[in-house]
Design a protein around this nucleic acid. Sequence first.
RNA 1: GCUCCGAUAGUGUAGUGGCCAAUCAUUCAGGACUCUCACUCCUGUAACUCGGGUUCGAAUCCCGGUCGGAGCACCA
Length: 491
Amino acid sequence: MLEELSVKKEPEKGLKALPNAEKGKVVMRFAPNPNGPPTIGSSRGMVVNSEYVKMYDGKFILRFDDTDPDQKRPMLEAYDWYVDDFKWLGVTPDEIVKASDRFDTYYEIAEQLILAGHAYVCFCDGETFKGLKDKKQACPHREAAPEDNLAHWKKMLAGDYEEREAVLRIKTDIQHKDPALRDWGAFRILKKDHPRPEIGNKYIVWPLLDFEGAIEDHLLGTTHIIRGKDLQDSGKRQKYIYDYLGWTYPVTLHWGRVRIEEFGKLSTSGIRRDIEAGVYTGWDDPRLPTVQAIRRRGIQAEALKKFMIEMGVGETDVSMSMDSLYAENRKFVDPIAHRMFFVADPVEMKIDGYAGGVVEAPLYPNQPEMRKIETGNLIVVTREDAGNLSVGSKVRLKDLGNVEITSVSPLAGKYIDNSMETTKKEKMKIIHWAPVDGLKVTVLGPEGNFEGIGERNITAELDKVVQFERFGFCRIDSVDGENVVAYFAHK
RNA sequence: GCUCCGAUAGUGUAGUGGCCAAUCAUUCAGGACUCUCACUCCUGUAACUCGGGUUCGAAUCCCGGUCGGAGCACCA
């Protein structure tokens, strides 16, 4: 039966349409510097770019902008980390390129620009050039003839100059009202090796981002670029090259910075230092805002995607709380997570009059599937719960039965029955428990670690997300005999 | 100093001149349900940066202020 549709327009769900995008013709790229692993922040670019490509049935390129072996030196392992996190997101790039493979192309185009009089070798030191530039004045090298510039360029390539002695600049408009756009640097000299062994110390003239990115975006056929606001001027600078060479600049969108409230001020280099110093166990330490870390904690790729997609592509800086991501994740994980008992900070409790046996407890609330917990009459409860008990008080041990407390230290009780009627009639509090001889469980989480005892069914949950009742969702990271390590996701 | 960009509830968004006494999500508060402090459900609190202008009509257009962000590197 068809219902009368409401006249109200549907709220737009998901990403907004890309300007000038044609189905099947969109080419987009995500271009990180592999100087560390993907973070929650960078995953925005991974998600949004790849989602747009999917939406338009286009082509997606992963490009490594890895041409700074000095300040933002790539990490060899990080190239694979990106591919791996993409795989986790369900994305396989159609093409993967490394800028460090394409020096020769950059050199060719540089030469073209030099010969056409659009680039020159500048011998000013940084400060001198800046001084002139701020006064809208050209430096003497700007007027050199193309042939001379070419000769200087060849000498640069040949290694005749030292670092900082010469730089290749793109001519724009030295009088441009925006100082950020006046004659910008395209290549510098750096007598350093590249971390990739196949590149090593093959090159001493290195392209800077604006040049490298400009050339790549054209050669790769990029139709749409989404990048940070910090690169807004970059597009304007690069357009000069596009104009000189008769290329068409891609459609460009910008977004503001994402700040995750819980993580505040962590920088990649700072984290790296702390890992080396042993403050963190690695890039996937649950306290870190890396994709590796949240994966390990059991955040689902779909949840991260929704989180990023709903944030959209705005130019304002956003400040998000992990709570939103957790709320998203809970929706995915709550229906599938098996319920398990884990008792943090355990206190022993003896139940007199209980023979022990096999307790049946539901794997999911209100559903028939059961799990079995074998236990004797010695169990553990959390120290917190124990603290709320007093002699004579009654409590229900979930799925096991009702108990009247007979002693507080040591904690002991008398078994009453296993009837929910009794529980309700007496308005007992329901607490969780575990057999004393359960597994030794360590939970590692962003706000600290917990030691405790868990039921043995956890063994079967390796690599899965479970809900430790009254504790939170965790991913079972390892099971080694009697020892289990779980990573805490969220409540 | 010069230049560019942005501004809707605590947070993130929807909204492109009348359907907006403003959407959705999350957070927070209260309640219902529940053998978990989870889930689900109900209710509530809470926003168009300010001042002018254009217009019959402005969150939406224009100008100015304020606030915020970014760039002016031989980093990305």
